[in-house]
């Protein structure tokens, strides 16, 4: 039997009510459109993060990666479904247990500039939470901050500076230090290296890897960059329009993708080995999550679409040990 996952999502749904803009409100008044729009950002998403692994989450813009990350991190409520921490429903925990679990999952964001308070010194950005939560005393705080800064490759001498006095790569190190300060077990990194230049990006990816070993961390690594995910993740979850369409060990997924969307995604990604390639890509736009297609969300763009795909949403089911895919072709 498999060990209980460290963190799991069970049939998570998330709906956002979108307030209409002026043109939209006018259309409603004139009877030309229904009222406020609902975005179904997550539609029955289940996944499990095993202790010690790096789970990659890939998918195109707007497919719900960040929303899923925020819900798993406990900084956004789900509309329905459960989040399990070591098998226990996180919403039912109380008292100190609840607080401990809250600190155990921390998030690192894409844009280091806007996720750090510009008016706080680095020492305070990092030291605030562990002090508030009683994880360190004020007397220990200075040394504690220095240790974390060294762990993320920053000179403790710079701790009285403000975020704007650092480069993009350094600011991302500060963001990571802030997450580490409360001694989490799991880090959710949402496009954490997307804004960085190639040479700096490699430094930060290496840092993630060092910290994982040194501090026994588990990662959920959200990225649209397949090259990075292939390098860093042990397993990968592929999302399309609010649903998980495939999940597999990284090497298996890249060697033989199953879901037609995954196939298209991998085929479309530019590669360093390409030379004078004739570019071609799957037809069609990414549909709006306001109005997702019926049945399989991918059917308007799928080269293998069948009548059944237009009516019935395929279930995510096991196609091989450790591999899940949601496509009717597997049931044919």
């Amino acid at each position: 039997m498999e060990a209980t996952p460290l963190l799991a999502a069970e049939r998570i749904d998330k709906r956002f009510e979108r307030r209409l803009d002026f043109a939209g409100r006018l259309a409603v008044k004139l009877g030309a459109a229904p009222g406020n729009e609902t975005v179904h950002a997550l539609d029955g998403v289940s996944l499990a993060v095993r202790r010690g692994e790096v789970l990659g989450v890939v998918g195109e813009s707007g497919c719900g990666k960040s929303t899923l990350g925020r819900i798993l991190a406990g900084i956004m409520p789900a509309s329905s479904g459960r989040i399990l921490w070591q098998g226990a429903d996180r919403d039912r925990l109380t008292g100190t247990e609840r607080r401990t679990v809250k600190l155990a999952v921390q998030m690192v964001f894409q844009d280091p500039a806007s996720s750090l308070n510009p008016r706080m010194r680095v020492a305070d950005i990092i030291g605030e939470a562990p002090l508030v939560h009683g994880q360190v005393t004020r007397a220990e705080l200075g040394d504690y901050i220095d240790t974390i800064l060294r762990d993320v490759g920053l000179d403790p001498a710079m701790k009285q500076r403000y975020p704007h006095q650092f480069s993009g790569g350094q600011r991302q190190r500060i963001g990571i230090a802030r997450a580490l300060a409360v001694e989490p077990q799991c880090i959710i990194a949402d496009e954490a290296v997307a804004a960085l230049d190639v040479s700096i990006r490699a430094q930060i990816i290496n840092l993630f890897d060092e910290l994982r070993q040194k501090r026994d961390l588990t990662y959920l690594f959200i990225s649209h960059d397949l090259g990075i995910v292939r390098f860093i993740a042990d397993r990968v979850v592929v999302m399309y329009l609010g649903r998980v369409v495939e999940s597999a060990p990284t090497s298996a997924l890249f060697a033989a993708p199953n879901h037609p969307y995954t196939v298209a995604l991998l085929a479309g990604a530019p590669r360093l080995e390409d030379r004078k390639r004739a570019f071609a890509a799957i037809e069609g736009e990414i549909p709006s999550p306001l109005n997702p297609p019926r049945g399989c969300h991918f059917h308007p763009r799928c080269p293998h679409v069948m009548a059944r795909c237009r009516e019935e949403a395929p279930r995510l089911s096991e196609i091989a040990p450790g591999r899940l895919s949601a496509c009717h072709l597997n049931q044919a």
Binding site: S167, G169, D197, V198, S199, I200, R201, A202, Q203, I205, N206, D209, G227, I228, R230, F231, I232, T250, S251, R271, L272
Partner: peptide, 24 residues
């Protein structure tokens, strides 16, 4: 050479990326 080496594409999974130290 440094740029090419720091791309994850050419790196082995689980290894370390070659990175260019410092910044521009």
């Amino acid at each position: 050479a440094g740029l090419l080496a720091s791309l994850p594409e050419r790196a082995v999974h689980g290894g370390r990326l070659a990175s260019i130290p410092g910044m521009a």
